[in-house]
Nucleic acid binder design. Structure first.
Lengths: 305, 305
DNA sequence: TGCTTTTATTTGACTGAGTCAACTAAATTG
DNA sequence: CAATTTAGTTGACTCAGTCAAATAAAAGCA
């Protein structure tokens, strides 16, 4: 049996969110659709070809009520229903062009509603809220399949994010002091200030608007590419993002005809080391340091291309 | 404008949670209460002595509809309504003993419903879900944030936050390119790398764990303190945070016996300029520049201490 | 002060979202 | 192949929720 205070907290949230959703659903006020209409149209639009039964189950609607909604949608020419050849009782529902237009309009309104709310928030708050939503969904919805992570070049704010997340992570996990964050900021700042798009690059791993990881290649001169600031957020470990990021670096460096990639890391970062090793990097030197407080073993690895 | 993929994620969560709440609200199926009845009774039970107006506002109900629900509750002897002595139009609502019994029964059902769901989860998952719910609530519920903003010294991650938020803000609002974020990272990195706690300082304005603003004083040598990177997030404008941050700078600089504070800003930052002016700063020079893309007027202001 | 406007709540008059039961017709079972 | 189950539809209804107008106290104003 779960602890009572947890349940009470969950109920409190549910009361709050019932209100919040009620507010958002006013987006449909001056459309010919009710909330239920919108949910139905959305579901058909999103899963083209569903049948009425599945729809009723997924949206928890009365079949009779749903049937009437679908009838209206058919009359209004928003959807088409063709009998399922595999089961003549069942019918396959698809949106028409007209229905899709409506579907998209509803989406726009819904987006605008949320955007308005998000725009009153502090920088980073929407990201934090969405990350929390994803957490809840992953826990409560057994069918939730997380969106795929993508890898993209950096844009405004990303470099700051790198400084922040690494600064915080190394402080929390390894007790490194703020000089480390200073170093990261310095590296990142120089990268931006002297950015040479021909020979340098920054990759950001992102999932649904939330940054998960980063790496960059800077020109070390003499044909050597420097791989720097490889990082994968706690929330995304084990998805192979680190490997994907390093592979991007290697492919880029090959394309740009660097002759070698060199990187500096610390021995306690086992996961990172495993990635480097597997990619063919070799350890060329190692030295004890106390650059950021606690003693550590700095290592230099290189990969000949 | 918030990023689209974030908004889409939030909508996806909302669709999911609409379903989820629909499921939970079946707890009222075999009671004489509708969901709205339950919400009303709960609200009166939780905030004994509310009036109808506040109730209608908080639960976003039609006053007419609410009035009828309250009438029924009075007839059933669940609540009592006494005219507010301070305002004879308004009435103070309290639950009776009978009403409290009902209220508690509803609570039990609601708890049981959630407990059933939670009991299917892995160890630690309910805790994680509830923590995420708190996060969302703290961000989205304007009433759940009576927390005052505090001003504190920087710690791990804060400097990165400064880079990120300013980088993003100036890009979105003024179209400045990434060289600006590079400059901020450089300034911030140098601050950390050469940090002299005797003569330098960073202030972070924070509310409920979320950073809202920043400023720092660096030693410009020759008795001159440099005020840098003043920033207040859009979610916290108008609260006087900018002024408080600048006042911290002035007090600190006086204490450390600097003879002057100098700062560089741009003319279009009206709010900041007003703060500097009011604090006694005077404009000493101005020059056009294109350091970050669009043309702008850089200004140097000083305050003699 | 008295007149006008605003605010808190109630009442009248609807309507249409959602429900329940019965029905048709195709598919499945044994 | 008769009996049962499943997918969807139709009839008949009701009650949650809405909109406009009324009441009456409070607040604003000239």
């Amino acid at each position: 049996m779960t602890e009572l205070s947890l349940i009470e907290s969950a109920r409190e949230f549910n009361r709050f969110y019932t209100n919040f959703l009620g507010l958002l659903n006013k987006a449909y006020l001056d459309t010919p659709f009710t909330l239920t209409d919108a949910r139905v149209l959305f579901e058909i639009g999103a899963h083209d070809g569903v049948n009425a039964g599945a729809l009723a189950r997924d949206l928890q609607l009365d079949p009779a009520y749903l049937s009437r909604i679908l009838k209206r949608f058919r009359e209004e020419d928003f959807i088409e229903a063709t009998p399922d050849p595999a089961d003549q009782r069942s019918q396959i529902l698809t949106v028409t062009g007209k229905g899709r237009t409506q579907f998209e309009e509803l989406g726009r309104r819904s987006n605008a509603q949320i955007a308005t709310r998000f725009d009153t928030l502090a920088d980073g708050e929407p990201q934090a809220a969405v990350a929390a939503m994803r957490t809840i969904r992953a826990i409560l919805d057994p069918q939730a399949r997380p969106a795929a992570a993508i890898i993209r070049p950096h844009r405004a704010g990303d470099i700051g994010w790198i400084v922040q997340s690494q600064g915080r992570f190394y402080a929390e996990e390894y007790g490194w002091d703020l000089r480390f964050e200073g170093l990261v900021a310095d590296v990142a700042g120089k990268f931006l200030a002297n950015f040479d798009p021909e020979m340098e690059y920054c990759w950001i791993a992102e999932r649904a608007g939330i940054n998960l990881g980063s790496v960059l290649i800077t020109n070390g001169g003499d044909g050597v590419a420097k791989l720097r600031l490889l990082y994968v957020d706690k929330a995304a470990r084990g998805l192979g993002l680190g490997k994907r990021l390093v592979n991007e670096c290697i492919a880029f460096s090959r394309r740009k005809r660097y002759r070698q990639i060199s990187l500096w890391t610390n021995d306690f970062l086992h996961t990172a080391r495993a990635i480097y090793q597997k990619a063919g990097f070799r350890l060329v030197s190692e030295e004890r340091h106390r650059m950021f407080g606690p003693e550590a073993n700095g290592q230099t690895w290189v990969l000949d291309l």
